[in-house]
């Protein structure tokens, strides 16, 4: 009887894996070679034209610039702040629990809701950010040229300012994401055996920095590899904020035209499935390569950690 039972058990899962995950990838690869659009009869095979467009047109150059700016701000900062917060909280013992709770709140809250609140906070005239900055005018802060300029004319428009938009969006991404990494690092820190610190101290590592460099950091290696990868994957997928702030067009001068939004705009809004599918394939390639690198690093490290 057992010999048949497994078919019933793995059958539904296998079927869904093919229908929901694997076949769509094949469809995306197939469509990326055509100019298909939903509702139109037939589609022309266009070869690699869509890919050529992605790697030559300035719109898509902006897409890559926006995506990589976001990713390369958010990943280091969420990892760094996550580690920093975890180290500080860990050093406080159980007094740190309240901070842990607070820092984790943004991870729980629907990003779309918090994005709308941040948009209000960054509002140039009625937002709390600029009105707080204005209160600092006339004080020593004016010694800072950027600040003096803001007082003289106006402070930046933040989300609607071509030079600030992507960084403001990145800031919100960091705000939302570092608590997640902090919790992963805290789990990593509690699993370090305290005897190792005693041993390091006997070997002369008395300064805090030495103990961090010689014990904490190497032992957090596997955690770091995981945290970095998951931060990359999460930040590549940024979408909610961008759509909420800029329903059309991806921000001032397309400076916030990130990849997930590009897929949405091309595929869903403009029904250009071919180009949308091509961006999907490029996106999948990024994410999968990153994950494979992570797995390889973890497997390599486990030999000596």
């Amino acid at each position: 009887m057992q010999s048949r039972a497994h078919l019933w058990f793995i059958g539904p899962a296998m079927a869904l894996m093919f229908i929901v995950l694997l076949i769509p990838i094949l469809i995306a690869v197939g469509l990326s070679l055509t100019d298909y659009s939903l509702g139109n009869q037939g589609a022309e095979f266009v070869g690699l034209e869509n890919y050529e467009r992605i790697f030559t047109r300035s719109t898509y150059e902006k897409m890559f610039v926006a995506t990589f700016r976001y990713v390369f701000v958010v990943v280091p900062l969420t990892v760094g702040l996550g580690l920093g917060a975890a180290l500080l909280i860990h050093s406080l013992g159980r007094f740190g629990d309240l901070y842990k709770t607070i820092y984790f709140l943004p991870v729980m809250a629907a990003l779309i809701a918090m994005a709308i609140v941040w948009e209000f906070a960054f509002h140039p005239t009625i937002g709390i950010i600029n009105s707080t900055l204005e209160k600092g005018c006339g004080t020593f802060l004016e010694a800072w040229p950027w600040y003096a300029k803001g007082c003289e004319r106006t402070f930046p428009l933040w989300l609607n300012d071509r030079d600030y938009a992507i960084w403001t969006v990145s800031f919100i991404g960091v705000w939302q994401g570092f608590g997640f990494n902090m919790v992963l690092y805290l789990a990593g820190l509690t699993s370090i055996p305290p005897q190792l610190y005693d041993a390091a101290e006997m070997d002369g590592a008395t300064r805090g920095w030495d103990r961090f460099r010689l014990v904490t950091w190497p032992l957090l290696g596997p955690t770091t590899v995981f945290v970095v990868t998951i931060s990359f994957i999460r930040s590549f997928q940024v979408f909610d904020m961008v759509e909420a702030f800029y329903p059309q067009g991806g921000g001032p001068s397309k400076s916030v035209f990130v990849m997930m939004f590009a897929i949405y705009e091309k595929g869903i809004q403009q029904n250009l499935m071919g180009i949308g599918a091509a961006i999907t394939v490029v996106f999948l390639a990024f994410v999968m390569v990153l994950t494979v690198i992570q797995r390889w690093l973890v497997e390599r490290r486990t030999h000596y950690v």
Partner: peptide, 10 residues
């Protein structure tokens, strides 16, 4: 390895 959001279009 596959993020479901990424294959939204197909």
């Amino acid at each position: 390895l596959i993020p479901v959001h990424a294959i939204a279009l197909p």
